[in-house]
Write a protein that binds this DNA or RNA. Sequence first.
DNA 1: GATTGACATGTCAGCTCTTACATGTCACCT
DNA 2: AGGTGACATGTAAGAGCTGACATGTCAATC
Lengths: 181, 181
Amino acid sequence: MRGMSLRIALLGLLTAYGSASGYDLTKKFERSVAHVWQAGHSQIYPELAKMTADGLVTVEAEGARGRKIYSITPEGRAELRAWLVGHDPTGPARSEVALQAFLLPLLDPGEALDVLERLKAYMEQKQAELEALWAAKHASPVPEGTSGVKFGNLALDLGIRQTRTTLEWANDAMAQLERQA
Amino acid sequence: MRGMSLRIALLGLLTAYGSASGYDLTKKFERSVAHVWQAGHSQIYPELAKMTADGLVTVEAEGARGRKIYSITPEGRAELRAWLVGHDPTGPARSEVALQAFLLPLLDPGEALDVLERLKAYMEQKQAELEALWAAKHASPVPEGTSGVKFGNLALDLGIRQTRTTLEWANDAMAQLERQA
DNA sequence: GATTGACATGTCAGCTCTTACATGTCACCT
DNA sequence: AGGTGACATGTAAGAGCTGACATGTCAATC
């Protein structure tokens, strides 16, 4: 039961937004889950086929242009619930930003400052995107959601906080490097 | 030039700590880089072989028990520097914790609280580990490092801040769920 | 009537990564 | 002399993922 996060993400989206096609789900990945997990259609289509074979989803209907509408089965719901409740969050730590941070002292301070400057710009842009998403969500009048919390908001909040933290770190690291130079 | 982070990490370690064997580098991964990037020996040995073929590292000497001592070449140094200075930090976003956060509203509040409680415990433990590392580094009298900043400290600082942020988020999310229940 | 572009689904080569298997050396303890 | 455990290097199957290739439908514009 390793690395089945793509499966879980798909089951989650099918639960939250109701039935959808592979195409729809690909769009959801681009738009709503992108800050949390990424997957392209070339990964999603085969996975849906496997999940159908495993009985976690079914093809509810076939629409125009070969469109296949998937929906989650009780087995799928059980699988999702079991993962959410039982999954140990020991995900492999792999962050390119952190790796860059780790290796930064190998550069001389001037170059390191440049790298941090670029990182800062990237993070600021990301922050703006996330905050725009936040604003958009809070403007609309409760669209979808299972409990009182709007779907995806907790994750969005986490993302915004983490971006802010990275930004603060970059600023402090720059100040530290400037003191040395 | 995609996903060459393992290469970069190895080049970085060879620069920072001088020449080392595959075994040594595996240990460094377990101990010093683990919070930033992960790799086992079965990934490291073949990669070192490829890097040798590409002229980025050389086998400096062969010691006892078949031990091979690698060191970085000028080409390797150039490659590392180019990556650090020129790399765009657009790493694929893939966080199991964030995915769990995203899907959390699919559970009822009681179960969601349990999940957050477990996450909090995990993060607290991680935080303790990182802070112990920090304390250990600040106790010893400047061991290795290229500039004035001790090697790996910037990354450690980032890790500690991010863990703290996740912890704060978990607490606030729990408070929010409790208000609903 | 033709082109454009969004819709829609798939496959495949090749890389990364994980897990497990496999082999052998050397120092130390009993 | 035998056993344990750290040292040390490798291979291989299979999953995960990326990027490119491939195919076709439908609606709207020119």
